[in-house]
Simulated assay, not measured.
Amino acid sequence: MYDLIVIGGGVLGAFHAYHALEAGLKVALIEKDKAPQDATTRNFGQVVPSGMNTKWQNYGRESLRIYKDLQSQFDISVRQNGTVYLASDEDEMQLIEELHAINNQNGYASELLNKQACLDNYPGLKSSYAKGGLFYPEEVTVEPRIMIHRLLEFLKTEKKLAIYTAKTVTSCEHTGNIVNVETACGHKLKASKVVICNGREFKILYPALFAQSDLQVSKLQMMQTKPQGSGYHLPGSVLTGLSIRRYESFSECPSFSAIKSREAQGSPEKKWSIHILFKQATDGSVILGDSHQYADAKDIDDLGHGMDMAIDDFMVQKAKEIIDLPTYEIAHRWYGMYSQCKTKDLFQATVDEHIHIVTGIGGKGMTGSAGYAKENIQNLFNLTI
């Protein structure tokens, strides 16, 4: 008998388990695959509260504290190299200056960089592109294919989390004060509360509620170059002008609406919702991307299972206009899928007082999950953490 069963071993589920364990609860986590392999492992590994609106920036700032605390106890691949947004024209410069002022009001550290500082700090950055930048020294990166596995290992070995892998939950029923959970292979567990943090189990367990939701799925294409060699080092997360024109935090800037209204419509950037990001991995390779194609969650198959090479070619072309990497030879290509809500921050539903669904966190997952899950566990169990 557990106090909490978490269904879904991605970053959102893992941090729900972490905070419940920190509160002294007995916790089990059920993961449908042998190990997490969906959105949590198929992204850049950027923890960037700077890109969030005010509400989610607060969650993200708490996430930064949590990531750094965890790293001090166990190597989950956290590196504090900061985040930079590179402006390519006067409109983008105006936005980063306005966001810097908002950061000052909110007490969040950021530093305006002039053109020369950007060129000095980011090797290969083209003078023809960079006008200036906005740097966030407190922000971190993780290795997306490593972090979640190490976090779960830490929770299992050091915090006594019970982990059940390769088990798909097919039944979740509340009787009295107990929730009975059963998997496809007949494994049965009991808990006082259940939190479902996986869209697939949500769809299986509550199909009518899933069909009524406003969940949509985004398909993101990303690439990874071959290692750049020991002589090349690109620090932290590098986000560019298209990110400035897309991220939620900039939408709170006074000039944002007017600047967006002047953008050309029908461009490849608009068609595929592209913004160019760079992050160097620990092996020296550079992750590039990304694009966004959308479909309602019920129509996920419409997005297909292949890669659109026209998208990848366009992203490489745009990346070459920004940073002259030693090599743009691509070693890996992949796509990720994440769910998000059309009208809300994320999908939350209470089936009854003992069964809760939390999913559809979208692109906020790596940054916001740790901070958000802390608050949610506190609310669900009426705790002070």
Rank of each mutant, 00 (worst) to 15 (best):
E182H: 00
S171F: 02
K193G: 05
I178D: 12
E173V: 14
I204Q: 12
R145P: 01
A208I: 10
P144V: 07
P207Y: 11
L113P: 09
K156A: 14
L161A: 07
A117P: 00
A184Q: 13
P137I: 09
G124S: 13
I146P: 00
L125C: 13
L155G: 10
S128C: 06
E138C: 01
A184E: 15
C172N: 14
E143N: 10
K193A: 03
L161K: 06
P123T: 07
A162N: 10
P207L: 07
N177P: 00
L205K: 06
K188G: 04
F135V: 08
K203S: 11
Y206D: 03
I146A: 04
N177Y: 04
L125H: 11
A191F: 03
L151Y: 08
N121E: 11
L119T: 14
K188N: 10
V169F: 08
C172Q: 06
F154N: 08
S171P: 00
V181P: 05
T141F: 03
A130S: 15
Y122A: 09
A162R: 01
K115W: 05
V194R: 01
I204Y: 11
K115T: 13
H174S: 15
L151E: 13
R150A: 06
G133M: 08
T175L: 04
E139L: 10
R150M: 06
Q116P: 01
L134E: 14
D120I: 05
K188P: 04
T170H: 02
T141L: 03
V142N: 05
I148E: 12
E153C: 01
K167P: 00
E158F: 02
G176Y: 07
Y164V: 09
V194N: 02
C118F: 03
P137H: 08
I163E: 09
R145S: 13
G132R: 06
T165W: 00
N198D: 15
V142M: 02
H174M: 02
G176M: 03
T183K: 00
A191I: 03
Y129P: 09
N198C: 10
K131A: 13
G186K: 01
Y206T: 10
K188F: 07
T170G: 10
M147R: 01
I148L: 04
C172P: 13
S171M: 04
